[in-house]
C-alpha cells in the first residue's frame, strides 16, 4: 500500500505557479506536488493520480483560468467520491463575492488565500489543511508529525484510541 498524498496546484500564470511551487518545497518530501495550468489539465492530472492508487490531499486553485474557472472545478471535485475529501483552497486575486459564496456553499471551500500571499501564510494554510486531511483520512499519523501540526496530530491520536501496539 504505497499510496501517496498529492498537493495539486492549478494556476495559469507560469511565474505565479513557479512561486507557489517554490513556497511548498518543504512539503514535497511527504506530499508530492503536481501542477496544472488549466482546469481540463487539472482533471487529467487528478484522474491519473487517482488511477495510480494515490490521493489528492489538497488542491490550491486559482479562480480565473482559461476554460472552466476555478470554482467550477472545485464544485466538480466536491461531487466526485475520490476527491470529496480533498481539502480545497482558492488562491486568487479576483474571485468576486458571488463566486466565493458559490465555492463555499457548493464546493465546501476549506480556505481562501488572496494574492499576493506570503510564504509563511501560505505554508500555514497548507500545513493546517493537510493536518486536517490526514487526521480525517489516515490511520498512521506518526509519519506526518514532523511536517504537519504535531500538536493537533497528537490530540487526534489521544482521542483515536491508541494502544501500546
Amino acid at each position: 500500500m504505497d499510496h501517496k498524498i498529492y498537493i495539486l496546484i492549478v494556476e495559469d500564470e507560469l511565474e505565479v505557479m513557479d512561486a507557489l511551487v517554490k513556497d511548498l518545497e518543504n512539503f514535497e518530501a511527504f506530499f508530492p506536488v503536481e501542477t496544472a495550468n488549466d482546469t481540463r489539465e487539472a482533471q487529467e492530472v487528478i484522474d491519473y493520480i487517482i488511477d495510480h492508487g494515490h490521493r489528492i490531499g489538497l488542491i490550491l486553485c486559482d479562480h480565473v483560468l482559461p476554460g472552466k474557472n476555478g470554482v467550477d472545478l472545485l464544485i466538480d471535485l466536491q461531487s466526485n467520491k475520490d476527491t470529496i475529501k480533498t481539502k480545497k483552497v482558492l488562491v486568487t486575486g479576483q474571485a468576486g463575492h458571488e463566486d466565493t459564496i458559490l465555492a463555499i456553499n457548493k464546493a465546501k471551500l476549506d480556505h481562501y488565500i488572496s494574492k499576493p500571499w506570503t510564504e509563511k501564510g501560505l505554508q500555514e494554510v497548507v500545513r493546517n489543511q493537510l493536518t486536517d486531511y490526514v487526521i480525517e483520512n489516515e490511520k498512521n499519523l506518526l509519519s506526518y508529525m514532523q511536517i504537519l501540526d504535531a500538536e493537533k496530530l497528537s490530540e487526534a491520536m489521544r482521542t483515536k484510541k491508541m494502544t501500546d501496539h
Binding site: 506536488v33 496544472a36 489539465e41
Partner: peptide, 30 residues
C-alpha cells in the same frame, strides 16, 4: 529561462528521472 507549462514540466520531469536516477528528491527533479 522562460517558465514552462505544467504539461511540458511533467514530461521533462520524467526525462530527468531517467537521466538522474539517483535523485529521489522530487523538488530537485522539478
Amino acid at each position: 529561462s522562460t517558465p514552462v507549462d505544467s504539461n511540458t514540466q511533467r514530461n521533462r520531469m520524467l526525462m530527468i528521472e531517467k537521466r538522474y536516477p539517483w535523485i529521489h528528491d522530487r523538488s530537485s527533479v522539478r
